[in-house]
Computed example of a mutant assay.
Amino acid sequence: MTLKKLTVLPTGTEILLPAGSPLTEVEYETPERLIPFGCRSGSCGACVIEVLEGSGHLGEPDPDELDFLEDLGRTGGSHRLACQCRLRGDATVRVADDI
């Protein structure tokens, strides 16, 4: 099993997850609530993250995710819904509300 590293800012917490894991697994790897997951289906916007490094390692956003991010005013390509991402390589993210 290959492990990939997700760094979550502003805390700088590093979490190792098996390659291909959904980012929702973060909840089970640390007692801290690093990413505020809500509905887990990409429709509430609670888990918006800004991808600082490794955007290509989180999978491609589908059109519905991109439309919803636009509705939230999070355009420009650096924002994602964490619940829709799978970690395929090392990445660094920051919870959008902490920006």
Rank of each mutant, 00 (worst) to 15 (best):
G12N: 07
S21R: 06
C39I: 09
I35K: 05
A82D: 01
V51C: 02
V26P: 03
A91Q: 02
R88P: 00
S43A: 13
G45E: 04
M1W: 07
R88M: 14
Q84F: 04
T75R: 15
S21W: 03
T2C: 03
V51N: 01
G89K: 09
L58S: 10
A96Q: 13
E14K: 13
C39E: 06
D67N: 11
F37K: 03
T24Q: 12
R74V: 00
T2W: 05
A82W: 05
T2E: 14
S43Y: 08
E70V: 04
L69D: 08
E65R: 08
L17P: 10
T13D: 08
P18S: 12
S21N: 09
R40L: 14
G42H: 05
K4Y: 01
F37Y: 15
L16P: 02
L34Q: 03
C39N: 10
D98G: 00
L23N: 03
S43C: 09
D97S: 15
E53H: 09
S55P: 03
E25L: 13
R74D: 01
G59V: 04
L3M: 14
E25Y: 11
V93E: 01
P36V: 04
D64Q: 12
T11G: 01
L16Q: 14
L81I: 10
G56K: 13
G38R: 06
V26C: 09
L72Y: 06
V8L: 10
E27T: 11
C44L: 08
D90W: 03
V93D: 01
E65M: 09
E14A: 12
Q84P: 06
I15V: 12
V93Y: 03
A46R: 12
T92W: 00
E65T: 05
T75S: 12
S41W: 00
G20N: 11
D90H: 07
D71K: 13
T7Y: 01
L87M: 05
T11S: 15
M1Y: 10
L66F: 01
P36E: 09
G56D: 11
D62N: 15
L87T: 02
E53L: 06
T13N: 05
T2P: 15
R80N: 04
L9R: 09
V95W: 04
E29L: 14
L66R: 14
T92D: 00
F68H: 13
G38A: 05
C47M: 03
T7N: 01
L16S: 13
G45M: 05
V26R: 02
S41N: 12
Q84G: 08
S78V: 14
C85S: 07
E53Y: 02
V48K: 07
G59H: 06
C44H: 05
